[in-house]
Nucleic acid binder design. Structure first.
Lengths: 403, 403
DNA sequence: CGGCATAAGTTATTCCATACAACTAATGCG
DNA sequence: CGCATTAGTTGTATGGAATAACTTATGCCG
């Protein structure tokens, strides 16, 4: 059972072995989260465990191929040189899967954060039958799985990102308007071996999680609101590096926040939803482009100072700012990461969004909102999905330790 | 350090003693959450620990006066009769403190949930200087403390509920518009002995937490949105019995969700905020009453079928419904508890709120929203504040075990 | 070049919370 | 009165982690 965050606390039994598992995970996380490859002694320092304890735990993690040793480093100080520890590359890997309106794809990451294998198949998938699309994705997944297994890696699981309401506990898609899908059990349709653990989650939520680990190892905030602007608009609430999922995993449906009750009718039935102002199609249409036009066309218009395009982005920014202000008031976050098409439009959107945030966020005087482009932009959901699998490994490495 | 929920996960050290503490808390919680007083054997069953282990842990909790034994029950079945375990009454107690626009008060609860001591002082406190008001409250607190200590009880801590933006980590009040207070360190102004641990939190958040334990021991949902309608409107997000606090504890500021950008100007600077439609003063004014009129006056008008009153409540319900729909879309909750003045108005508000929820909540087809009056209505924040202290005791009973 | 300080990592021992198994205690039942 | 049954206790074993002492591998200084 892979979940975007660990399963509900439930009733935690508390035997003695839990201690070892807990500390094993603690050590693994310390190595993965470290700024530079730490020695056993440094891990002991960081975790509060003693050096002997860390040693035995590290040995176990080395045998499980969760960690790896680097050659002893040359130090300038006295003392025995440390053996730097790093997450193992190309051993345990996790697979992210995604279906979106214009592609299906899979990406395999290892614990070091490397993309080990990837395959993206573009195509217009709106209203394509789910059986067909998911079978196609399953085929890709199977091929990548074969590749990595042949290369000696162990696939720990997979996570499927879908642009819609996903029940993460039942692994069920309730509805994905932009795909034209509803009431679906997507996992069986992939046709993957049942031994492979496949979780399902919302695309924006997974993309949000991916922001926690930029490829350049720079640090992002550990709490933020990630907004994904696509045809629909989704969001992820991340607090203390944990995703807020809500009851089912449907949290973050920001696209239908009411911006103006007198506004245009939305396909959700209400009027004046955010999506009608700041959704991809809405922006393009307001800028005088067609929904099928590439985003670059809008970029060009903006760079040329085209008035309708500037007006479209301004209106989108104001609407987005209002919706974000409401969200921030409700959730008490101080960082907003602009994802999806908003990443490229960040500088164009900023003034209008800023104005609305400053005017409407109650906490502004004490905690002004940090508004920035999302650091991970390249199909972040795919990366986030794979990371969820790997997070499952790091949170319970005991599963992969035989002795 | 009392917090509405336990402090941030941070870096959990993991020594051997943690195991005992964890299991101690597990056993304590099992007894407190049980539907009927359980035996040691039943606790063992419930927790997954063995009977000998439970026995030693229970002994410790008995010595710490966290638990108590009842006289062995008469059973109809064979076997040695069980000794029922209950939370100890009148031993360890927690104090809730509250300042609101029309009263200051303190309430002391024991682990069994009994109100052990209470003192409410009504008064119009809008624009009263915080030094004075908090000193008054401190005086009450000191008197209650003396009473319970004299009666042999141990006061584990206190928690102060305030109607405003409270930074729970710094224990600081940023702003409380309805009190006319801002930028305040309230705890020192209470003048309580520094040995007493006093936390601070938002009134609506604490009232929301209180809903988890109705006095009649009936079960509420473990996840819900609690809405507190007063002069301002606040909310608490409770997921899996845990309060979502956000970064600072400012979550749940629902009162300034925009309902209609063309609506009346709000003192927050924006226009058409929820508070302008569904705040206590707004409803009373729209019903032709004065803000100072008691709620009963509105009740009478409604019962008489007074048209302006009905219209006022209808408008409030529609506005509230829209704001709640936005909140539910964002947070994925399926239960809304109406608190504050909304409790009494629940049946009057229901139709309009229902309509808006059904129309706007995306998840309605799969998870219709349960809308009901809050089960704990009698100054719930005061109760919730005391419970936060007691929760701290139950989560770490080792603090009170000497041996 | 050899002793010494220093830091990393390991080995041997102790400690302690829990599991396990066997016991005692207190009841109903035939 | 013996027996089955369930609650609770005692005594022993297990196994993680702490502690302290050790080994290893370096830089530094005379």
């Amino acid at each position: 059972m892979e979940h975007p965050t660990r399963p509900r606390p439930a009733a935690p039994a508390a035997r003695q072995a839990s201690l070892r598992e807990h500390n094993l995970a603690l050590v693994a996380r310390a190595v993965l989260d470290a700024a530079a490859p730490p020695s056993r002694a440094a891990v002991a320092q960081a975790t509060g465990l003693t050096r002997p304890t860390v040693s035995t735990l590290v040995d176990r993690l080395l045998r499980a191929r969760v960690l790896d040793e680097l050659p002893p480093e040359q130090r300038r100080t006295a003392g025995r040189p440390a053996v730097p520890l790093v997450p193992a590359a190309r051993t345990l890997v996790g697979m992210g899967l995604e279906v979106d309106v214009d592609f299906v794809g899979a990406r395999v990451l290892d614990l070091a954060g490397n993309v080990v294998a990837e395959r993206i198949d573009p195509g217009q998938l709106h209203d394509a039958p789910p059986q067909e699309t998911l079978a196609r994705l399953g085929e890709i997944a199977r091929r990548l799985t074969d590749d990595v297994v042949r290369a000696g890696m162990t696939l720990a699981g997979a996570q499927l990102a879908l642009p819609g309401l996903v029940d993460v506990h039942r692994r069920r898609l309730q509805v994905a308007p932009n795909l034209g899908w509803s009431s679906l059990d997507p996992v069986p349709l992939l046709g993957l071996p049942s031994s492979l653990d496949v979780g399902v989650a919302n695309e924006a939520n997974l993309a949000g999680l991916a922001q926690l680990r930029p490829a350049d190892r720079s640090t992002t905030a550990s709490s933020f609101l990630y907004v994904s602007g696509e045809v629909g608009i989704g969001a992820a609430v991340v607090l203390d590096r944990e995703l807020y999922l809500g009851l089912h995993g449907w949290s973050g449906e920001i696209g239908h926040l009411p911006v103006d009750p007198n506004g245009p009718r939305c396909r959700c039935g209400a009027t004046g939803c955010l999506e009608q102002y700041a959704g991809k199609d809405a922006i393009l249409r307001a800028a005088g482009l067609a929904p099928s036009d590439p985003l670059a066309a809008l970029r060009d218009l903006l760079d040329d100072g085209d008035a309708p395009a500037l007006a479209a982005v301004g209106a989108a920014g104001r609407a987005l700012g209002r919706a974000l202000a409401a969200t921030i008031n409700l959730l008490d976050l101080d960082t907003v990461l602009l994802g999806g098409i908003y990443t490229d439009l960040a500088e164009d959107l900023r003034p209008a969004v800023r104005d609305e945030l400053d005017a409407r966020v109650l906490a502004t005087p004490w905690s002004p909102t940090d508004l920035r482009a999302a650091p991970v932009a390249d199909r972040a959901a795919l990366t986030g999905a794979a990371q969820v699998v790997l997070r499952g490994v790091v949170d319970d490495p005991a599963r992969f330790c035989e002795a």
